[in-house]
Design a protein around this nucleic acid. Structure first.
Lengths: 163, 163
DNA sequence: TCATTTCCTAGTTATTTACTAGGATTTCCT
DNA sequence: AGGAAATCCTAGTAAATAACTAGGAAATGA
């Protein structure tokens, strides 16, 4: 299942962020039925098992999910849905969300010209604006939204969606 | 002059956007002395001549600068500084600024699941927030800002800054 | 005519992305 | 005990992309 990443698009989220968010929403939606396995998410979302494994492991490392090993095991949310923001999720998956690093950090001597750096001003504002946006969307809102769109049973899910 | 792109940073602007914006600010600052040549920008900003050429050509294609060929030639702004937004500049250099494409477009049949696509909601909001931010910063503000920081003659410029 | 500039296209190298692969470990179930 | 079903962990790899480099044509002023 090779990904077709749109051409000419920069500043784009990688499949990690895109698949990972979808996976976590899926997990959240099925979290009342006990631990959710990679295989089941993989089937519903049509994302490679092995790759999903890695993404979920990032979410775990970030403390967003916890796992139960062994047969019948799987993953479950480590916090309440209303306490997990899209920012938490994307940062766990993508690293930082800053299009340009530097913007503020000098202690390590990263940018000597930082004093006279005009563009810094721009990168800072972009960073802040993205942060503000993703930090005010929470998982419970997305699950809610999703329930409204695909009311129980009408389970088309996001099959094959690359985003 | 190989670029050291910070690790672990995703959603990042490419050197096109970063160098290109710096170049255009430089150009704007020297635009009262007639056409500004690639060589001169290249020297001041320490960006490869050949590479800069390509970046500036993108800015030209987008109608932000115009050129004078031949000896003594160079580039000059095609519009007033207050009519060129950072959004115009970055879009000219980077293509679109949407971290995730799809978010809204179906006519061409891009995303079949779009109806039931929850994450679309997220990508849309991120896209909008970036757009709003970059479209409200204008070139004249940056030039002004830069004048304040590096008052005439104190020309440290952004030498060697990778952003 | 010659130096200086933009213009245009193609080639190249290094990095990064998006996976795939293999196998160890844990746990439940019979 | 033993096997199936899971997570866990590390490494490898092919394709795509980014970041340049290279070569030369065309225009223009001195």
């Amino acid at each position: 299942m090779k990904t077709v990443t749109e051409k000419g698009e920069i500043l784009k989220l990688s499949t990690k962020g895109r698949y990972g968010l979808r996976a976590l929403i899926d997990l959240a939606q099925h979290s009342d039925e006990g631990p959710v396995s990679i295989v089941s998410i993989s089937e519903r979302q049509e994302i490679s098992e092995r790759y999903l494994e890695q993404l979920v492991s990032l979410l775990k490392k970030a403390g967003l999910v916890r796992s139960v090993r062994g047969a019948g095991g799987g993953y479950m949310l480590a916090k309440k849905m209303e306490d997990i923001s899209v920012g938490d999720i994307l940062r766990a998956l993508e690293g930082s969300l800053k299009p340009v690093e530097c913007a503020g950090l000098e202690p390590d001597g990263s940018c000597a010209a930082s004093e006279s750096c005009v563009t810094k001003y721009v990168w800072q504002r972009i960073n802040e604006s993205i942060a503000r946006t993703v930090d005010e969307i929470y998982l419970d809102q997305l699950v809610e939204e999703s329930r409204k769109m695909n009311p129980e049973g009408t389970n088309t899910e996001q099959r094959g969606c690359r985003n």
